[in-house]
Write a protein that binds this DNA or RNA. Structure first.
Lengths: 134, 134
DNA sequence: TTGCATCCGGTACCCCGGTACAGGCTTACG
DNA sequence: CGTAAGCCTGTACCGGGGTACCGGATGCAA
């Protein structure tokens, strides 16, 4: 199974523990007998992960989807998209600050000689300049 | 010290272990006596962290900055910016796919009835449709 | 001097998504 | 029937950034 799905055996068992895979039937000797469609299910799980859902969230999506025809997926996708937008915005802000650091030719975290170095602001330091400007 | 810097005491000791703070002098009884400027240093560390540097990277930046006048900071900031650009690009791709999922009105991860549902593609599933279209 | 807050070192635990290893049992193939 | 490959459970570990708890020692003020 693991081979067919391109996953580690331990990962399958991990998913089982996390509730993503139902406990499968067993052979007399105790070996897991996976039902048809398990490969497809695992691919769905990986796809959902790539969309930014955590394993717990994927478990919820799978459980919900089986019982109700629920518009849950759409709702959760929308929520996830908002979350991703927030993360993108954060990263964009960080990126902008890094650009300033580079542009100001900052040369040290602690004693930057560059003009317009944005580092003092970032530290929340109550500098003379900051005080004076308000 | 921890109180003045707004950090947990354990965090200070953790930074010491990680090499971000030099081992401070001790009182007779063994209590740490932090030198002046430690609050400022901790603020710098937090600022660098906000810029996306890991603790190891911050340690490197601090060490380097003390000895050489090195343009290291600029170089590393540029590298970090590229890294952040990559992460933003990944998130943008995920965001786009989520938008498709929402637009196609997908209702289930496993049995989506929406037209143009992008999920099959994501799973890497060798579907009949996919086969036919090439 | 006494009392209480705080610090000390050491160790263990948190989240997240897995991965590895040990020691033993089962299954499939020849 | 023998043997090797593969599975079984249980437990421990990875990385990153901390946090919590323990028993004991210290520091400072009244």
């Amino acid at each position: 199974m693991a081979e067919r799905a391109g996953l580690n055996v331990q990962t399958l068992r991990y998913y089982e523990r996390r509730g993503l895979l139902a406990e499968p039937a067993r052979s007399n000797g105790g070996h897991r007998l996976y039902p048809d469609g398990t490969v497809a299910l695992l691919r769905v799980i990986k796809a959902a992960q790539r969309l930014g859902f955590s394993l717990d969230e994927v478990a919820g999506l799978l459980d919900g989807g089986h019982r109700r025809p629920a518009p849950d997926l759409r709702q959760r996708a929308a929520g996830k998209m908002a979350e991703i937008d927030r993360r993108i915005a954060e990263l964009a802000a960080v990126r902008a600050t890094l650009a300033e650091v580079i542009e100001a030719r900052c040369d040290s975290l602690t004693d930057c000689t560059g003009a317009g170095c944005p580092l003092p602001d970032l530290t929340g330091e109550p500098s003379a300049t900051t005080e004076a400007t308000r």
